[in-house]
Design a protein around this nucleic acid. Sequence first.
DNA 1: GGACGTATGTTAACCGGTTGACACAAGGGT
DNA 2: ACCCTTGTGTCAACCGGTTAACATACGTCC
Lengths: 325, 325
Amino acid sequence: MPTIRDVAEKAGVSVTTVSRVLNNRGYISEHTRKKVYQAMEELDYQPNEVARSLFRKKSNIIGLIVPSIAHPFFGELTSYVEYYAYCRDYKVLICNSMLDAAKEQEYIAMLRRNQVDGIIMASHTLEVEEYKKLDLPVVTFERFISDKIPYVTSDNYQGGKMAVELLLERGCKKIAHMCGSLHLDMLANQRHQAFLDVARERGAVCCTVETDMNAFEVDKYERLLTDLLTEQPDIDGLFLNSDLMALVAITVCRKLGKRIPEDVKLVGYDDVLLASLTSPQITTIRQPLDKMSELAVQLLESLIQGESVKVENCLPVELIERETT
Amino acid sequence: MPTIRDVAEKAGVSVTTVSRVLNNRGYISEHTRKKVYQAMEELDYQPNEVARSLFRKKSNIIGLIVPSIAHPFFGELTSYVEYYAYCRDYKVLICNSMLDAAKEQEYIAMLRRNQVDGIIMASHTLEVEEYKKLDLPVVTFERFISDKIPYVTSDNYQGGKMAVELLLERGCKKIAHMCGSLHLDMLANQRHQAFLDVARERGAVCCTVETDMNAFEVDKYERLLTDLLTEQPDIDGLFLNSDLMALVAITVCRKLGKRIPEDVKLVGYDDVLLASLTSPQITTIRQPLDKMSELAVQLLESLIQGESVKVENCLPVELIERETT
DNA sequence: GGACGTATGTTAACCGGTTGACACAAGGGT
DNA sequence: ACCCTTGTGTCAACCGGTTAACATACGTCC
């Protein structure tokens, strides 16, 4: 790899001059500028960003911690975050926490060692206190940590409400909600609150299935749903916290010989790409993932630049009715 | 952020001593080591990896270029690559080329600027020559560049062969293959070669649909498949180059009133998580993505360490028959 | 002829680590 | 008494850039 010295030599100028060209500061004649660019071209020179980062105390790298990029929701999220970050000249280091608290903490330490300018947290296995200690700019998805840490979310309560109301309107008598662990106070838990509130208000029978903390696995979903629907065969409405869960639910219903939407109705969540590609297509609550990701990147950049930002950033959800209701 | 100087001061030793503790070199008494560790603990010190990278000329970061992480295949791939890389103490910078050649080239330049130790390329929009010029360790997925650049692939010809043979065995008379652009000489094109060979050998009528270079979009697949199946309604077997395409094909067939597998049989490719979650579940050719990713990381690490490695790394595929055949 | 703007070079410090050379001291072994 | 091992410190150079301070040189304008 050629260095700035090689460029200077080749162009017949000083290192300072090359640096001035590179950073557009001070006086540079058109002639010299051309010579320098040409030398860079010939050497295929690329400035060493590691050296620049060290000096500037800014790496232009952000960390993104997700449970697993293999999960369609987080895959799409990552894709958007990377896109919007790159537009603002930030690179993304990815971390798959696999919903493992120790791993998540290790990742955070790693990101600090690597001097990332900020972190977007979409995995939350740690207690609030752990995040509060962080001296870095942080933006979270779907979790309130403190009034210093902005979060991006969508209107979970409204989403849960619309989902359940739709199920009841379509005639469901006994409904169930499948969600992740309710132990950590995630904003997504508001979906469950809405589920409970609406069910009570309308006098519907309801029950809840919490998937375990450490399981993001389809097998687990399948087992839980199979158990649920065999133990309580009169359940005729399912509200699922992700489209992936809904996808599994479709499979399980088919295996149990339950027709959708005749015998059981489903509402998923997220509206990932897949939701419209399944058979039947999944009725779901759409989170504006594109906008949410853009906003997260925007907020993080503002924090990095020392600006203060709104802490709560809640975007509207939308009911997309398809074929499972 | 505390520096090594702060640690030295707090522990009452010299910077050199702290560095020796950090890197386990030279003589250090147990007593001093403890003092230093305690100081690091108290300050919550993390060594600045940017400074270390600069000195060592090694960033312990690798770049991963994929078309889009939102695509389930590449999402899973990325997840595995990140996992195996992290096990070997490498961090991953992600790049979504979106199958855009200019973007891909920009990403490569960016990765060089950032001094990544190597690149895993799973997106290939550029001509072979462009990759040959790279002075970095590179491992590719599914593409032969030169005998200097190792590649990881699965047995594409065999995969194509098994897929088509299955379709014909199940009684298909007119089959079609949907694949990406055949323009660039990707190893995945061997699937198409196998498709043609087997079809000719068995005297089956066949045709091909190439998706456009720049389209990774489901809409595009849908349009192409709809056109195909309406213009040639006697097609009764589809071989699709990814499970995502197969998923779209299921939707299209349903819209056109064609039953699967009675009227049309499908074979997908990859065996991503989704393939077994759809209704009907997709018969597919399984690529051992986990092993392939691990191998890619292993190879890259070997290259980084200056070892020489086998150029061709081909893993076996497996036919997973499910419900679409 | 002096002031000023433009253009470039020289030098040195700095970012936060790592490393080698060398000095020095304490303790043990012979 | 001397050598060796162990433990620690000081100092300086280095990685590849950036930047401030200062010097110098050429035009040009008044």
